[in-house]
Structures are given as structure tokens and as C-alpha cells.
């Protein structure tokens, strides 16, 4: 126990107020304020992998690490679409996942937002359209925002979530 506590103290708080901006992107604290103003307290996100290579999942996981600490700014990944405000979709939509993706969206309460993550979600990526793949997420369900990148960085994903929420 003493080991665990001492490591916690030595580690300190790592959460960054501002993950290095790629462009002149708004600061993390502004993002935080925007979120509070628009949503009150929280944004619940449901993620669905509609056929990705699992690269984008790794960067979505990173959002939960102490540097990005998204729960600290009021965003949370939830287990059920019924609890979700926003659907985060990765991958080109495979034929085998088309039905599951549509059903997940249907299970979400209105109003709802959809953000397609990664080159595949945005345009089909290297897999494109084929007998097994429908390509971009927008070919299957309505999408408010896309994030390019293979995989996109955690900051880019956060930015896209933010703009989807602001535009809504």
C-alpha cells in the first residue's frame, strides 16, 4: 500500500492543460468551458467499431490516459447506446457490421450526434468500397463530423467531438 501511495504522490497530476497544438487550435481550457456551456456537465460517448483495423481504437483508448483525462473535462465513454449523446464510429463499415451499426444508432435517444473517426470512417481509407466494405460511415448512417488521420491523434479526435457539439 505504501508503495502504491508513494508512487501516486511521485507521479503527481499529469493532465495537460494543452496537448501540443497542431495548428492554432483552441486551448484545452476553452474546450472545457465550451463543453460546460453547451452541455451543462457531461457528454456521454458510445464507441462502435464498424470494422476498423483497431488503430483508431488505440488512440481512443489514449483519451482516457492521465495526459488527456477526458473524464476530467466532463466526457465519458458509456457501455450502452441508450446512455449516449454521441456515437463515435471507427473503420470502414463492413457488410457484416452494417446492421449492428444501424441498430446501435437506433438505440440512442434523440438528439444524437455521430462522429466518424479516421481515414476509413471518413472516406473508406485503404479498404475503400467492396463486396465486404461499404466504405465511409456516411454511406450507412448520417454523420455530423469526420476526423482524418491514420490513426488520428487523441487531440484531433477531441477537436472533432468539440466541433460536432458546437455545431449541433
Amino acid at each position: 500500500m505504501i508503495n502504491t501511495l508513494s508512487r501516486m504522490i511521485r507521479t503527481g497530476i499529469l493532465t495537460e492543460t494543452f496537448p501540443a497544438p497542431a495548428s492554432a487550435s483552441p486551448a484545452m481550457d476553452r474546450l472545457q468551458k465550451d463543453m460546460r456551456n453547451i452541455l451543462g456537465r457531461a457528454l456521454c460517448i458510445r464507441h462502435v467499431d464498424a470494422g476498423s483495423c483497431n488503430g483508431c481504437e488505440l488512440e481512443i483508448h489514449a483519451l482516457n490516459n492521465p495526459y488527456y483525462n477526458i473524464e476530467g473535462i466532463g466526457m465519458k465513454f458509456v457501455a450502452s447506446p441508450r446512455h449516449a449523446d454521441l456515437l463515435l464510429v471507427t473503420g470502414p463499415v463492413t457488410a457484416n457490421m452494417e446492421e449492428a451499426l444501424k441498430r446501435t444508432l437506433d438505440a440512442m435517444p434523440d438528439p444524437k450526434l455521430v462522429v466518424a473517426v479516421g481515414d476509413c470512417g471518413a472516406c473508406g481509407g485503404v479498404f475503400g468500397k467492396s463486396y465486404a466494405s461499404r466504405g465511409a460511415v456516411a454511406n450507412v448512417i448520417p454523420v455530423q463530423r469526420t476526423v482524418a488521420g491514420c490513426p488520428p491523434s487523441p487531440v484531433a479526435i477531441l477537436e472533432a467531438i468539440r466541433s460536432a457539439v458546437i455545431e449541433a
Partner: peptide, 8 residues
């Protein structure tokens, strides 16, 4: 479920 037709 994630079969994307990679071989083709």
C-alpha cells in the same frame, strides 16, 4: 464481423 475483403 470486421471482414473487409483484404485479400481481394
Amino acid at each position: 464481423y470486421t471482414h473487409k475483403g483484404v485479400s481481394k
